[in-house]
Nucleic acid binder design. Structure first.
Length: 244
RNA sequence: GCAAUUGAAUGGA
């Protein structure tokens, strides 16, 4: 199976997903071994390319073969549903897994947190978060970023900042994505100065990437501070970061 | 030994 998976994964990563699907279907037709990894690879690539109906087809094939799920596969499915904003399907998957004794690990749970936040369901996201702590699954920077993402989407920046403090207290460092989320939220509220202050704070720990430059440049543009936007653009070039 | 979760913008309908 690992040999098949390696080939299939190679095809997927090389953009030959159709070939990978054919190969998978042929492998199944011939009755050769497939496992969770084979399907996970293909489903993940299909979702990444927004080919959700194909992803569902492969998922059906997988179910018909009674594949035993593992952590990676569960995350792939959860994440795919969340990308589609299928909140209730994601919840169904989560509870199905729990009921069968496949408890969602931290990665799968983080994917679900993200999906709930994306769908604007902060209440359930927070209770899931609390559950992760209570059940010993644990939380990490991804979990916090998911919640902060949700709060920023709802324009509840104070709550987002509170979480940033809480994560530090708990021993999880904010990462560049945490900063990007909060800076973006501030910019959306027209608080470009505060966003800039965060930028400086971020720079004490991280090298700004193209995305972070994008956030601040866009913020200045929307605030009609084109000079500042240019300054950051040129700064980005000086730091050898390729514009996208 | 292979596969899994988080950030920006623009345009189209």
């Amino acid at each position: 199976s690992v040999t098949f998976n390696t080939i299939i994964n190679g095809l997927c990563k090389g953009g030959q997903i159709n070939l990978a699907m054919e190969f998978l279907e042929e492998t199944v037709r011939k009755g050769l071994c497939t496992n969770a990894g084979t399907y996970s690879s293909v489903i993940h690539s299909l979702c990444k390319n927004s080919r959700f109906s194909s992803a569902l087809r492969v998922t059906d094939l997988m179910i018909s073969k009674n594949i035993r799920p593992n952590d990676c596969l569960m995350t792939t499915l959860m994440s795919g549903l969340c990308l589609l904003n299928k909140q209730s399907e994601a919840r169904k998957l989560y509870h199905l897994l729990q009921s069968k004794g496949y408890n969602a690990n931290i990665v799968t749970s983080n994917a679900f947190i993200y999906g709930l936040c994306k769908a604007g369901n902060m209440q359930e996201a927070l209770s899931l978060f609390k559950n992760m702590l209570d059940k010993g699954v644990g939380v990490d920077t991804f979990s916090y970023n998911g919640l902060i993402y949700g709060y920023c989407k709802e324009d509840r920046l104070e709550a987002g900042f509170k979480l940033k403090e809480e994560m530090v207290k708990r021993g999880y460092s904010p990462d560049i994505i945490t900063y990007s989320l909060l800076m973006h939220g501030l910019c959306n509220k027209g608080k470009i100065d505060e966003s800039l202050a965060l930028w400086h704070e971020c720079k004490t720990s991280f090298v700004p990437d193209v995305n972070l430059y994008g956030v601040i440049i866009n913020g200045f543009c929307n605030a009609e501070k084109i000079e500042e936007a240019w300054n950051f653009f040129e700064m980005m070039l000086r730091h050898n970061i390729k514009p996208n």
